[in-house]
């Protein structure tokens, strides 16, 4: 109910605030730089390996250039996603506009989902503006398109999960900077959780890896479209959105 006005407002807000442009420019500049870098090192390696007689089955532009690019995108977004979500709810508390939203005939879930979806849309716009990369490679060489598509799906699902965590942090406070720092913390933990405890015990390390955003994302960028990874990323998102809903509802009781 009344989902659309809130979505439109949030979507426009991204384009009237300078933060979104800065995030987009920084992202495109960094990925562009890494893209050129990996093409150069790929051709260097190609020269070294040619005639060496080694097995070159894994040596193709998709796994040597695009797969690392997807990982780079994910890592950059750990720092950029919090900047995209920090104001979503915190600002409504701060400017007291929450009173307008909550006394209008709009359900809490529509408010949250409209805000969330607007962030997913602008995030996807940034991510998809890098599709020039596989096309450039495909022009000079060739890429495995199914793996590229699976990789982009991975980046967008990963973003969906990270944005939901960012939104959740934004419901907790009325200060944007606190929301941003908190979500960077949460994202870093969920990114590295699989690697850190590798040595503790087999069982623990298996559970930790199961919780890691990176592990599930990594499988998708390999072109392995496994339903378990998709389900994990979507569940992560649902839990974060559900918790955001609870926090807003509690905030209403406290006033």
């Amino acid at each position: 109910m009344q989902f659309l006005p809130v979505f439109k407002k949030e979507f426009r807000a991204y384009f009237t605030s300078p933060i979104y442009y800065i995030v987009a420019v920084v992202f495109l500049a960094l990925t562009g730089y890494f893209f050129v870098n990996s093409i150069v090192s790929y051709s260097n390696m190609g020269i070294q390996l040619s005639g060496s007689g080694r097995d070159l089955s894994g040596f193709n532009p998709t796994s040597m250039i695009m797969k690392p690019m997807f990982n780079t995108m994910g890592t950059i977004f750990i720092l950029l996603v919090p900047l995209m979500t920090m104001r979503l709810v915190a600002d409504e508390w701060k400017s007291r506009t929450m009173e307008l939203l909550m006394t209008s005939p709009v359900s809490l879930s529509s408010i949250i989902f409209a805000k969330y979806l607007s962030s997913v849309v602008v995030y996807s716009m940034i991510v998809l503006s890098t599709v020039y990369m596989p096309f450039v490679i495909d022009y000079y060489s060739s890429v495995a398109w199914p793996q590229i598509i699976s990789g982009y799906l991975g980046v967008i699902l990963l973003g969906a999960a990270m944005l939901s965590a960012g939104l959740f942090c934004s419901t907790l406070t009325d200060k944007q900077i606190i929301a941003a720092v908190l979500s960077i913390g949460i994202l870093v933990i969920f990114w590295f959780i699989g690697g850190v405890l590798g040595a503790a015990s087999q069982e623990v390390s298996r559970i930790m890896r199961g919780l890691s955003l990176f592990e599930h994302f990594n499988a998708l960028t390999d072109g392995l479209l496994d339903l378990r990874d998709v389900v994990y990323l979507l569940s992560f998102t649902s839990v974060a959105l559900f918790l955001s809903h609870r926090i807003l509802d509690i905030g209403r009781w406290k006033g």
């Binding site: 009344q2 426009r12 605030s17 400017s95 506009t97 929450m98 009173e99 209008s104």
Partner: peptide, 24 residues
Amino acid sequence: PEHPPLYLEMTVDGYLRFAAELRG
């Protein structure tokens, strides 16, 4: 409310349009 719930980065027109759409 006591503190008018305003979005400072919106125009008056845009804000009132949003408020109207929000009410259906």
